[in-house]
Design a protein around this nucleic acid. Structure first.
Lengths: 151, 151
DNA sequence: CTTAATGATTGACGTATTCAACGGATGTCG
DNA sequence: CGACATCCGTTGAATACGTCAATCATTAAG
C-alpha cells in the first residue's frame, strides 16, 4: 500500500497533517501542560520533576531510586540531583534499603507530605485549566486511555 | 475543597498516585512514544523534531518559520537549526516570503516529500506499537480528545 | 524621514539527557 | 572461603536542548 502520487511524481502529503499524529498531539499536550504546571508550582519553588519524585516518595511502600528512575523514565543519575534538592529542603530522606543495603529508599517527611498536598492542589488547578475543553467524563476517559498505553 | 487529613495531622496521600495525574500520563506517553519514534526514524537519520518540520513544509501553503515555531511551541532560534539540517540534506528550501521579504517560507523539495513519505510510514509503525493496547476506535477517540485540548 | 515593530539569525547561558566509569554491596559458583 | 559477575547509587564529561538578549534587514506607522 503506497500513498497516492501527484501527476508530476511527487508523493501526496495532503490529508495527513501533523494534527492526526498521536505522537505530535501528546508531545504538544505534554509540553503545554508541564509549562503551565511549572508556572503554577513556581510559587512553591517546585518543578514538575521534583513534584513527581515527591509524589512517589509519599506512596507506601517508599520506592528505591532505581524504581523511581524506571517509573519516571529517567536516567538514575538524574534522580540523584532531584532527590538532593528535595532532601536539602527536608521534604524527603534517603533510607538504607531494608533487604539490600546498596539501595536507598526515598521517603517523604511530614514536611514533605504537607508540601506535596499543597503542590497537588495547585497542580489540580493547572490541569483543570488544561483540560477545560473536556467534560468530566471525557477527562476520565482520557486518563483511562493514557493509562492503558503507558502502564 | 481540601484533601482529607490523617488523625495525626499529616495530609493523606493515599488514593492519589501519580497514575491519576493526566499531566504525568501524558508526559510518560510522550516520552516513551518519541523515544520509540526516534529509534525508528534513526535509519533515515531523522529526528522527530525534524520530521515535524518536514511535515509542515509539505503542507500547502508552505509555512513561514515563525508559523512553524509557534505551531511546534519552539523558540524561533531552534527552528533555524532544524531547518538548516533539512536544507543541507536538500529536503526543504527557504524561499523569501511572498508579501514580506523578511520572512522565509519553508517548502519541501521533491526529495523532501519522498523522505517524508518514508518517514511517515516508519512512524506509523511506531505509533501502532505504542497504541497497540487500544482498539482502532479508542485510538480515534484518544486523538480527538487530545486534539481538543491542544488546538 | 523618523520611529517603532517584526522575521530570521546569532551567540551566550543555564538546564537536561546520555554515557562511561567508579565504589560499595550482593549473589553465585567453584 | 574466594574469584567473579551483577546491581545500586553516584560522579563527571560530552552532548543536546531551552531560554534570552542583541543584531540586521525589512516593513508599518506617524
Amino acid at each position: 500500500m503506497t500513498p497516492p502520487s501527484t501527476p508530476d511524481g511527487e508523493p501526496s502529503t495532503a490529508g495527513s497533517p501533523l494534527t492526526d499524529e498521536p505522537l505530535f498531539l501528546m508531545a504538544r499536550a505534554s509540553s503545554l501542560g508541564s509549562a503551565a504546571a511549572n508556572k503554577k508550582l513556581a510559587r512553591l519553588e517546585l518543578k514538575v520533576r521534583q513534584y513527581s519524585v515527591l509524589a512517589l516518595a509519599c506512596s507506601d511502600p517508599a520506592p528505591t531510586q532505581t524504581e523511581v528512575s524506571s517509573f519516571l523514565v529517567l536516567d538514575p543519575s538524574q534522580v540523584v540531583g532531584i532527590v538532593d534538592g528535595l532532601e536539602q529542603r527536608g521534604a524527603v530522606e534517603r533510607r538504607p534499603g531494608a533487604h539490600d543495603r546498596r539501595s536507598k529508599t526515598i521517603r517523604a517527611t511530614a514536611d514533605g507530605r504537607r508540601l506535596f498536598a499543597e503542590a497537588r492542589s495547585l497542580l489540580s488547578e493547572s490541569t483543570a485549566d488544561s483540560l477545560a475543553a473536556l467534560t468530566a467524563e471525557e477527562q476520565d476517559q482520557l486518563n483511562e486511555l493514557l493509562r492503558r498505553i503507558t502502564l
